[in-house]
Design a protein around this nucleic acid. Structure first.
Lengths: 244, 244
DNA sequence: GCGCGGTTTTGACCGTGGTCAAACCCCGGC
DNA sequence: GCCGGGGTTTGACCACGGTCAAAACCGCGC
């Protein structure tokens, strides 16, 4: 029923995205994939700065990043912003909206970005007949939770330098999983975004980049970050527990 | 089939716990409840300091707090600890273990505590036949994620005083949901735990309690915290976005 | 090429909250 | 009752990183 060609086709759509980057242990059949794919819908690409969904909007769908990147953040009543995370291809977004029917944060593109949409109503129907997919979705959500917790540990009492070092190492690891060069990062977010995400001032981030550069760990040029000495970087990260 | 008496019985077991404190919108029938209840298993009560599950142990079950309280924390290789959360009756624990088959954190009782256990293998079977329960479980996990995010916002760039104020307000809200007096808190955790959880030094927490007491907001005596002026407390919390 | 705006870097200063240390208090055990 | 010890409070000092300000850099449009 499913030829090699069909599978190839699947590999280029969101169904495959989801499978691949949900970090699923290959629990789904080709047929499952097709069913999942039928519920996925491509969307118009977003330009830099455009929002995928704003904080407070009625929940309706999950999204999977196909290309590009986004940030999610919450905005306080006093206009203060806290960035919650950065999202690369394969990441799933919008899970927080499940709990009370509204997205708890805004998702905004950091560059030209395309995503595909999984209408939740449809997804529910599909899931009801596919226990494997159901379990995998659960795992993905659990993974998101654990990622948040890792970040929390970082924000707890870690030194500024360690925060940045861990941030870079995690980005490197994520790039590796995407088959990008893990030693030549092109960071899509601004210094201000990084600083906010890490709970630091942007000047501090800038200074630390400088410091790590003169220490020979990195070579930094605006958005481009080369990791020259992974061993030293690991040292700066210290006994960081990475739960993911 | 299900008399009033039976329902009363259910109200005293974990099935009801879960329903009630999962913040579910009454999507489950009495029959569903009974099925769920059949998978739940009471455990021996834990004494203060005993661990429910240690970081790294093979994942096998979710747990619902029935009475008492616990903390969850991760331990770094250098012996450093970060507390992730405090868990009161009705809270579900162990979700993080789904992603990679191991609990990512330790859960330890803060006082004499009883929980009940939902073996995940059994739960999965039950879920497969109960879409409503499945959806609710998803919502619970989503809620846990959003709670983590709220905490992240707090740890981001908020002043020490605001952190403590928000912490107390959240505890008050949780007590209210448990039908406890929301203005007379008995906190089961130590100052050190609070400080660690909030990313502060325990001396700072102690000082802030003192400060809020002389400001007439609270009356503090060891583990007992009375909220005297909820309006002032709210003021200290500022434009805190509570996503839950 | 030139000039403008946004981002990043660098510098000087300062404040919040951390660290170290001692006193204190409460509760339990003997 | 008395003593002992963990948890908590209070005090003095200090450092990390934040804030304010200005300069430098870079990309982009005209």
């Amino acid at each position: 029923m499913t030829s090699d060609l069909d599978l190839d086709e699947l590999r280029r759509n969101c169904g495959y995205c989801a499978i691949h980057d949900f970090r699923l242990p290959a629990g789904l059949s080709a047929g499952d994939l097709q069913t999942l794919n039928a519920t996925a819908r491509d969307m118009l690409p977003l330009d830099r700065g455009q929002t995928l969904f704003p904080q407070g909007r009625q929940f309706g769908a999950l999204y999977v990043v196909r290309a590009g990147s986004l940030k999610t953040f919450v905005e306080g009543s006093e206009g203060d912003v806290q960035i919650l995370g950065f999202h690369l291809p394969g990441d799933i977004m919008g899970i927080g909206g499940l709990i009370n029917e509204h997205y708890p944060c805004t998702a905004q593109a950091l560059e030209r970005t395309s995503v595909c949409e999984l209408r939740y109503a449809q997804l529910q129907e599909v899931i009801a007949n596919l226990p494997a997919l159901n379990h995998q979705l659960m795992r993905v959500i659990s993974g998101a939770l654990v990622d948040e917790q890792s970040h929390l540990v970082l924000m707890g009492k870690q030194q500024a330098q360690r925060r940045l070092a861990v941030f870079i190492r995690r980005m490197s690891d994520r790039y590796a999983r995407l088959s990008r060069d893990p030693l030549a990062l092109i960071l899509p977010m601004s210094r201000e975004d990084i600083a906010n995400y890490l709970g630091l001032a942007l000047e501090t981030v800038s200074r630390l980049f400088g410091k790590m550069e003169s220490a020979g760990v990195l070579s930094v040029n605006r958005k481009s970050v080369q990791i020259l000495r992974r061993d030293l970087l690991d040292e700066l990260c210290g006994g960081d527990i990475d739960m993911a």
